[in-house]
């Protein structure tokens, strides 16, 4: 009998990180208006999920995401890569939600998908708390292995190479489990034209916070239980000397290193 491998990938839609960020003067949180894109960091999870399902000989990738405003443009990118479907928790009440409340929402959505494995990025590019994988795992009561650089699944067990300060650890955990994936470990595929066309018709199941059995007080500003009391500019570092290379700029570098007694 075939072993199916159903993978949930948590996917975040973020403002283009190449554009300068801006804080909303009233809420003092990051402005997330305009077009959102799939967080690059999540593309590795999507690719890894597709590869694992492929290797198992069956199964599919389901995306789980949340947004205050029905945004789907980033999810379409991941669907075009090959994810089968998406669950999007879309609710205005989610505005201002912190990482713990995000974990509560995503955990409830993940339960609906009944996956064998949940993949996340190690942290999002825009919020970068890096806490979500562990919070998610604790809420679901599952094991978690963070900072994976390689994943193998066999006989209901995930075997993971986990990044450490000194190198990496070989770690295993029974499924279902949460694994966070570091960037660069697989090469995310480019969506094909066929994939992009197919993505337009793939199901995105939109649910509200209340549909998941959560109260609106647990999410958004109310759920965060912290207050941004001040925002101020940091001391700026000044630009120094600029040298246009005309074939001898390396000499200036040598001189500079000598002044600093590095050489």
């Amino acid at each position: 009998m075939q072993t199916l491998m159903n993978v949930v990938v948590c996917a975040k839609q973020i403002p283009d990180p190449a554009a300068p960020g801006e804080l909303d003067p009233n809420t003092k949180t990051l402005k997330r208006e305009g077009k959102l894109i799939l967080d690059d960091s999540d593309a590795y999870g999507v690719e890894m999920g597709l590869q694992l399902a492929d290797k198992a000989g069956g199964g599919e990738v389901t995306l789980v995401s949340m947004a205050p405003n029905s945004e789907v443009s980033g999810l379409r990118t991941a669907l075009a890569m090959g994810a089968a479907k998406a669950i999007l928790v879309s609710d205005p009440a989610l505005q201002g939600t912190d990482s713990l409340a995000t974990a509560k929402v995503l955990a409830a959505a993940i339960k609906r998908a009944e996956p064998d494995l949940v993949l996340t990025a190690t942290e999002s590019t825009d919020g970068y708390t890096g806490l979500l994988p562990a919070q998610l795992a604790e809420i679901l009561g599952w094991p978690s292995i963070t900072f994976a650089k390689h994943i193998e699944v066999s006989d209901g067990t995930a075997k993971v190479q986990r990044q450490t300060e000194e190198g990496y650890d070989e770690v295993e955990a029974p499924l279902p489990a949460i694994v966070s994936v570091t960037a660069g470990v697989v090469e995310p595929r480019y969506p094909s034209f066929k994939g992009i066309m197919a993505a337009k018709n793939k199901p995105v199941d939109e649910v509200k916070v209340a549909d998941l059995g959560l109260s609106e007080d647990e999410v958004g500003w109310k759920g965060a239980r912290q207050e941004i009391v001040d925002v101020s500019p940091a001391e700026e570092r000044q630009a120094g000397e600029i040298v246009e290379d005309e074939g001898d700029a390396h000499e200036r570098v040598v001189q500079f290193l000598e002044q600093l007694k590095v050489i």
Binding site: S99, A103, T129, A134, Q135, A224
Partner: peptide
């Protein structure tokens, strides 16, 4: 690596936010 794992789990266990970075 481990700091995030412990803090994340504790935050969920105690149902308290954690401030990061």
């Amino acid at each position: 690596y481990d700091g995030r794992d412990v803090a994340g789990r504790l935050s969920a266990k105690l149902d308290r936010p954690a401030l990061t970075n």
